[in-house]
Computed example of a mutant assay.
Amino acid sequence: MTEPSDQALATRYRPQILAELEDLRAASEATAADRRPVELDQQSVGRLSRMDALQNQAMAAGTEARRAARSRALTAALSRIDEGEFGYCEDCGDFIGLARLDLDPSVMRCVSCAG
């Protein structure tokens, strides 16, 4: 099978990457309140409620960190598309393969080099 052109790769993956970035941005905005500092008002909630609130805040912060990492990876993939380097292994330079890119367009290594 021949490797697709840079334009074909851009046409195929840019919309998918942009859509995922938008989904991540929307999810981040929707959960912003969950990451706000927890008010430790002794009068309004009990100790267990505060502990639950702190745990939920920590989980929301962890989720946001994963979203941020995914956003950086997707933004880097867009940069590789713009530079004509998308779809090629950063280690060996071989084409990564459409099946692997379909699973995750942010991958930077072929199966051989990733393993």
Rank of each mutant, 00 (worst) to 15 (best):
residue 2 T to Q: 15
residue 2 T to D: 15
residue 3 E to N: 12
residue 3 E to M: 10
residue 7 Q to W: 01
residue 8 A to S: 12
residue 8 A to D: 08
residue 9 L to E: 08
residue 11 T to L: 13
residue 13 Y to P: 00
residue 19 A to P: 01
residue 20 E to Q: 14
residue 20 E to W: 04
residue 21 L to H: 04
residue 21 L to F: 03
residue 22 E to I: 07
residue 23 D to W: 05
residue 24 L to P: 02
residue 27 A to P: 01
residue 27 A to G: 11
residue 28 S to C: 10
residue 30 A to H: 12
residue 30 A to E: 15
residue 31 T to F: 00
residue 32 A to E: 12
residue 37 P to S: 15
residue 38 V to S: 02
residue 39 E to N: 12
residue 41 D to S: 13
residue 42 Q to V: 04
residue 42 Q to T: 07
residue 45 V to M: 14
residue 45 V to H: 15
residue 47 R to F: 06
residue 47 R to C: 02
residue 48 L to T: 05
residue 49 S to P: 01
residue 49 S to A: 15
residue 50 R to L: 07
residue 51 M to E: 14
residue 55 Q to L: 07
residue 56 N to A: 01
residue 58 A to W: 00
residue 60 A to Q: 03
residue 63 T to N: 09
residue 63 T to G: 11
residue 64 E to A: 13
residue 68 A to M: 04
residue 68 A to T: 06
residue 68 A to W: 02
residue 70 R to M: 10
residue 71 S to T: 10
residue 72 R to S: 10
residue 72 R to A: 15
residue 74 L to H: 08
residue 75 T to F: 01
residue 75 T to R: 09
residue 76 A to R: 13
residue 77 A to K: 04
residue 78 L to V: 07
residue 80 R to H: 02
residue 82 D to F: 03
residue 85 E to Y: 02
residue 85 E to T: 14
residue 86 F to P: 03
residue 86 F to I: 06
residue 86 F to W: 05
residue 89 C to H: 02
residue 90 E to R: 15
residue 90 E to P: 00
residue 91 D to F: 09
residue 92 C to N: 08
residue 93 G to T: 05
residue 96 I to F: 06
residue 96 I to A: 12
residue 97 G to Q: 05
residue 99 A to V: 07
residue 99 A to I: 07
residue 100 R to L: 12
residue 103 L to Q: 14
residue 106 S to F: 05
residue 107 V to T: 15
residue 107 V to N: 11
residue 111 V to P: 01
residue 115 G to Q: 14
